[in-house]
Write a protein that binds this DNA or RNA. Sequence first.
DNA 1: TTAATAAAATTAACATATGAATAAGGAAAA
DNA 2: TTTTCCTTATTCATATGTTAATTTTATTAA
Lengths: 154, 154
Amino acid sequence: MNKENKKSDSLIALFETKKSLTITLLRARESLMMSFRPLLAKHSFTEQQWRVLRVLGEKGPCDAGKLATEACILSPSLSRIINTLIENNFIIKKEDKLDKRKIILEISDEGKSKLESIKPEYMAILKSIQKRYGEDKINKILKLLTEIIDWRSR
Amino acid sequence: MNKENKKSDSLIALFETKKSLTITLLRARESLMMSFRPLLAKHSFTEQQWRVLRVLGEKGPCDAGKLATEACILSPSLSRIINTLIENNFIIKKEDKLDKRKIILEISDEGKSKLESIKPEYMAILKSIQKRYGEDKINKILKLLTEIIDWRSR
DNA sequence: TTAATAAAATTAACATATGAATAAGGAAAA
DNA sequence: TTTTCCTTATTCATATGTTAATTTTATTAA
């Protein structure tokens, strides 16, 4: 590319994959997940099952719709993940008596203890990441990304 | 949670999904992809097919290994995606005469014109996002995330 | 040179992502 | 009240994510 294009370079550059925000988000997430995958594999959890269990452990009983949003999983996927987690006795499915369309999901005692047993190892990895990049930098990223997430709900 | 826990709050809070960097990255990406999905659907491309085509259009002929890294796709997935793109005449597969284990992938003329035809619409969406959040903020995010990505290859 | 080893791509098997369609219950308008 | 429309969850079909195993070709060690 020669000098005549200088004016429009900043626009043309936007199409480059190296400067693509969506691709960069994907790569950054992958870099981080690399540290957690061995732990999840050791306990036979997929990323998604782990997210569902954490959300239920944190928020308490919850309908499938909210759970899907919180865990960042689409409902068709969640339906199957729920079945797996129920088979493994980590969560319980109840009916909503006020609205029979809904189902109420809740973490079981077995799910709770599983969560607690993994938590220390998980936190250790988290702290090593925090140490690696610096707490300030991570908080800065979290703040900036939250702005993106919250934009549509203004 | 009461005041006695104040000291350890910053550590305990780390386990909250709201402060999870990996989940936040996922949600932020989803917020952005929402703007692009209609365009990709209109042209019958999946996100991954689109990434592969863009990378090949940008880097020129490339072996499957490099392509997988650049497009952020695992090689088993890439194998299938490549077959689809070849069937649709968007890319071409050649052999590497120096190393017969490798394959060389290249965008076709049809692929190039498809890319060019979508590019204006894509750029328009990109600019609206840039306007929405501000160029500075986006560049700041890109820089911070790139640090995370580049950490392992120090 | 031969045997062992490593690398590149593919295949296999199972889980999730995505969009469309379906089923069933609830809410609103006629 | 009944028809219509909306919401919630599920199912279906196709594509991709993930790990392990396999195939083919290079490379290295013996």
